[in-house]
Structures are given as structure tokens and as C-alpha cells.
Design a protein around this nucleic acid. Structure first.
Lengths: 230, 230
DNA sequence: CCCAAAGAGTTATAACTTCTAACGAACGCG
DNA sequence: CGCGTTCGTTAGAAGTTATAACTCTTTGGG
């Protein structure tokens, strides 16, 4: 989460306690969901009384916001590592699914049901944009090897490409990155939510099929092995 | 929600109070999310003390389960009405989006972040299957007019078609119904969660593009007007 | 019609939760 | 070695879910 080797002893201790709180928080979230997260319960498990935690987190929302921040950072790191290995769009898709399956509630903390009042802090939206940027990079790289056919939506995206920032992606790449996100999230979120549970088919194959469809069957760059199924 | 014209006066009164509780519950969920739903607050708004509501709902979870049940029923009714009008797959897609935008938290109550411990009651999964059945019907009807090309996934689905029940859909129709669900849910859930908010493009056009892609551009049956955008 | 049973709503209470306030003790910087 | 900052404590307010016990009303059977 954070490196403990900085600042004064007190700061290091503080960072250590904060990390331990977050560790217990993730456990609670994993077993009972974010709604059931209790500062009191965490304090007791750490062997101290409830109000002590308020020295480390202003309130429950700040702890959850911090967890969301960490989740975003971890996802960005995962995608960045995979992108650095030049794994291609399908490599990113695999990394995303693994990351999500590794801790479904962490995925839902980012992409799940929003709390009506809640507004994400600016830095998390920045990380979100960075992730999108890496997907855009991969989409452009894939388009060089195999051109992506144009769609009717491309025109609209060409006119509304503010979300891509300064990225020089072609309209078709914008669309590809966007549908990469929506299509994989569609399968992944329903799988993680257990909506496929009694249905019998293998979600991994559906995910692989969607990945192949959205990448145009591009077998990745020169990075790790493709392995469509699992 | 339920017809008040049945049973004894007491039963009718009971049903009336239950409906009023649910009405207030939906308001709370809409403005603060399901996690913030408070039986106490509902009771006070209805002019009675907290424990009185326990005459009508065993506990908070039972109320939420009942809301989920109602949401499923309402979605099934909406889809059924649209399917009866022979609106085609894209008609169902439009109906789904309208229904979701009408009350995002209601959509998320069904398709949003799951609570780790929670298991859906049997009747809601039955309704879910009924909805899937109607999508399958529409997919088969569309395939008669315009054949759907086969995909690699079809073979797997042909071998694992238990979820389709007795439905005689061809493997390609199974896949089409499944991706209809996952692709539209992918766009819709991210839109409802506000993930597209600062991005500039029109989610309706993205949804329309995904609808057209998944239906193969079939301009519906003979029902209501198609109207792709909005 | 009458009366007992059933049901509705009440208050009191327990066991939780978040979060503030006030206090004492320990830590570590100068 | 001090002395101020920081930490952890207990006390307590205001919420929550949920149960128990009690009162009052409604209802249906004799």
C-alpha cells in the first residue's frame, strides 16, 4: 500500500497502523461487502477501542475512499505492468479478469453500484483516465497490425473525444477502447455478481469470446502467451 | 404493487401498509442507496414508531428482498409488454434502457454489487429465467428474418444449454441472447454508475450502437417505431 | 349481542453503529 | 532532560436493528 521507510518514526508508525486498518477493512469487505464495513469491529480486531481509529481516518467514508483509491492504483499498476510487457488488448483483458476474480468486492468498489451522493475524488478519476489511456495505446498498436473497420458511432466519438485527452487515437480506436471497457465489464460484472452461477456454461469462455470479438482476434503483440481460455 | 381488492379488511389494510412502506423505501433507496435504507426512518415518515414495521416485515433484509422481487417483476412486465408488441430485440433493448434510467437504483438492486452472503430466493431466479426466455424468443424471431453467423462460442453453448430450459433456440440464438444481456448491461451499468459522466460523448448513442451490433441491425418486427438514438 | 382471540401499535430495552469530547499517558524532538 | 505533540482511553450523544411486554382495537364465533 505505502512504503514504511519514510519520514519520522511517528509517521512510519502511523502509516503502519493505517495499513493494518485497511488490511482488516479489505477482509471485512471481502466477506460481507462494503456496506457492512465497521470501524468498531476493525478496532476490536486490532486490540484497541473504537474511537482510536479516528486518529487515522476522519470517518468511515474517508476509509472507504482510501480503499477505492488503493483499488484504482492497484488496477492501474496491474494494467500498466501488462501493457509494459506489450501484451496487447487481449493481454489487458486477461489481466483485468484475473485482477477482478482475485477480489470481486474490490472490483465492485470501483465499478459496482454507486452511492447516489458520493462524488469520486479528482485523483481517482485521473487514474481512471490513465487506465483508459493504456487501453487506447493498445488499441492503436493493434490497429497498426490489423485495421479496424469503421462504425457509425465513430463519427460521434470523433467529435466528442475530450475524454481521450491528447491521445492521437483514430476514431475507430476510440470506439474500440470504449467497447473494450463496456463489453468486458458487462461479462465480468455479471459473472462476479453470480448472475451466471446456475446457468451451466463457462464464463471464462464467454469472456474469451468477447475479448476476441472486441480485439478483432488480434493475437496480442510480442509479449506473453495469448491463451484465450484458461 | 399488489391489488388491494382481495381478502378480509385486515388483509387489505395490511397490504396497503406494506405498499406504503415499500413506497417510502424506494424513495430512500433512490436518494441514498440501498445501504442507507432505514426501517426507523420509514416508520417515522409514516407517523408511527419504529418497531411497528416489524409487524409487516420480519427484518430489514426481508424488506429489501421484497423490493428486489418487485423490481424483477416490474422488469419482467416491462419486457413482456414490449415483447407482446413484437418490438424485436432492439425494442427490448430500448425498453430495458428506459426502465433502467427510470430508476437507476432499482436496476442496481437487481444487477448491481452483490452482498457476499446473500442468496436470491428461488422465485426471483425464475423471473430472471422468464426474462431470458423472452430475449431468446426475440433472438429466434430475428434469426428467421436474418440468419446470425456462427461463432466459436456456439459449440460450447450448445453443450451447456441447461439455462435455456426447454427453449428450442439454435446455438447462435443462445449466444445472441447472452451477449444481448452482457453487452447492454455493460454500457448501461457504467452509464448509470456515472462512469461516463465527464467523458463528453452521448451514452445513448453508444447504447444504440451496441444494440445495433448485437441485433445485427435488425430493424425490429412490426411493432413500435425503432428510433435508434434519442 | 358478547366476549375471547387475534392483530396493531406502543414503550422499554439490549446491542449494535458512527462519531465527539475530554482526559491521561507515552513518545520524541530540541 | 523537559515539554509539546500525538496516541489511546473512557464517557457519552444520537443513530440503527430487533425483541419483549403491554395496551388497545378489531374481528369473528357462539
Amino acid at each position: 500500500m505505502t512504503e514504511p521507510r519514510t519520514g519520522t518514526p511517528r509517521e512510519r508508525y502511523r502509516a503502519h497502523v493505517r495499513d493494518e486498518v485497511k488490511k482488516h477493512a479489505w477482509e471485512q469487505i471481502g466477506t460481507a461487502g462494503a456496506a457492512a464495513l465497521s470501524l468498531n469491529a476493525i478496532a476490536k480486531r486490532m486490540g484497541m477501542s473504537g474511537p482510536a481509529l479516528y486518529r487515522y481516518f476522519a470517518n468511515r467514508d474517508e476509509l472507504i475512499t482510501e480503499l477505492i483509491r488503493d483499488a484504482y492504483r492497484d488496477l492501474a499498476d496491474t494494467v500498466r505492468a501488462r501493457a509494459a510487457a506489450d501484451a496487447g488488448l487481449d493481454g489487458l483483458a486477461q489481466a483485468l479478469r484475473r485482477w477482478a476474480l482475485d477480489d470481486p468486492q474490490r472490483y465492485f468498489l470501483i465499478y459496482g453500484t454507486p452511492v447516489p451522493g458520493y462524488h469520486a475524488p479528482e485523483d481517482t478519476t485521473r487514474i481512471s483516465q490513465e487506465i483508459m489511456g493504456m487501453v487506447l495505446d493498445a488499441a492503436c498498436a493493434a490497429a497498426e497490425q490489423r485495421p479496424v473497420p469503421a462504425r457509425a458511432l465513430d463519427e460521434h466519438l470523433a467529435e466528442h473525444r475530450a475524454w481521450a485527452g491528447e491521445h492521437p487515437a483514430a476514431p475507430s480506436a476510440l470506439r474500440q477502447a470504449l467497447t473494450f471497457w463496456t463489453r468486458l465489464h458487462g461479462v465480468l460484472s455479471l459473472e462476479l455478481a453470480g448472475q451466471f452461477s446456475g446457468m451451466g456454461f463457462d464464463p471464462a469462455l464467454l469472456y474469451a469470446a468477447e475479448t476476441e470479438a472486441v480485439t478483432g482476434g488480434t493475437p496480442s503483440g510480442h509479449g506473453d502467451a495469448p491463451r484465450p481460455g484458461r
